[in-house]
Design a protein around this nucleic acid. Structure first.
Length: 248
RNA sequence: AGUCCCUGGUGUC
């Protein structure tokens, strides 16, 4: 059972929902995790109809199943469907509330999002980050600032969100200062800074920053790759491609 | 006992 669940999950992660379903159908015994993993495999790969019908046919959909559906509907902008599922859930967890919050926030329904935020029985740093991200991407500086002051604590995600908002707003100095001031940096925030150097158009500085980075992954390589390609540095671009090992 | 769900980085016109 555990092996089967892991196989479904692994096919789901690699985007192969069909193969995942094949394993799912072949399992003689399924627990609630099996169903949820299959549900998530459909949802994360954009097979909303399949997810829907699986959900409706589940023997006993758990709060996790409901949460997966809320997230899936949220990502596709079906807010009324998301809310329906949310209302249907009786035993809402913090993650479930956060998913509903994300659905509203990512689709620009900020009044609904604020309502959910106020109604939530508990909030985590994730809840705060969801709203912070929405304010930032809407360039709602006033609400973002007010919100920042009320946040109980900041984590890497909070810092990165605000740093990117600064960079996109043209506040390069602020973004750089934040990068220095934040308690620790991870690959995501390094890459966000790399993107900032891309936008300033200084290839020298960009390259220097790229070489200074502690690690790389496919995203950071892609950023550097397209910067080279866009500027006609074909040879350098090919070096990056080679380093990526023809992956992606 | 152990496997499932939420927020931040590039691209998929």
């Amino acid at each position: 059972l555990l092996v089967g669940n892991r196989q479904i999950q692994s096919y789901g992660r690699s985007g192969n929902a069909k193969q995942a379903k094949k394993i799912f159908d072949s399992l003689p015994w399924k627990d609630s995790f099996t169903w949820n993993i299959m549900l998530y495999a459909f949802a994360r790969n954009g097979h909303l109809r399949d997810a829907e019908s699986l959900f409706e046919n589940m023997p006993s959909p758990s709060i996790v199943s409901h949460t997966v559906m809320i997230t899936a509907y949220g990502k596709t902008g079906c807010l009324e469907r998301a809310r329906e599922i949310f209302n249907r859930a009786t035993d809402r967890t913090l993650v479930c509330w956060n998913s509903m919050l994300t659905a509203y926030a990512q689709n620009g329904h900020m009044l609904n999002a604020q309502e959910i935020f106020n109604e939530m029985p508990q909030r985590s740093i994730v809840s705060f980050n969801i709203l912070l991200t929405a304010y930032s991407t809407n360039s709602d500086i006033h609400n973002a600032k007010m919100f920042l002051e009320n946040m109980p604590q900041w984590d890497l995600v909070s810092w990165t969100t605000v740093l990117i908002a600064c960079a996109r707003g043209g506040h390069i100095k602020d973004a750089k200062r934040m990068f220095e001031e934040m308690p620790q940096q991870d690959l995501v925030v390094w890459t966000a800074m790399l993107e900032l150097y891309c936008d300033t158009g200084n290839l020298e500085a960009l390259k220097r920053f790229y070489d200074k980075m502690p690690q790389h992954d496919r995203v950071s390589c892609n950023v550097m790759l397209s910067a080279y390609a866009r500027n006609g540095y074909i040879r350098e671009a090919k070096d990056i491609l080679a380093a990526m090992g023809a992956k992606d």
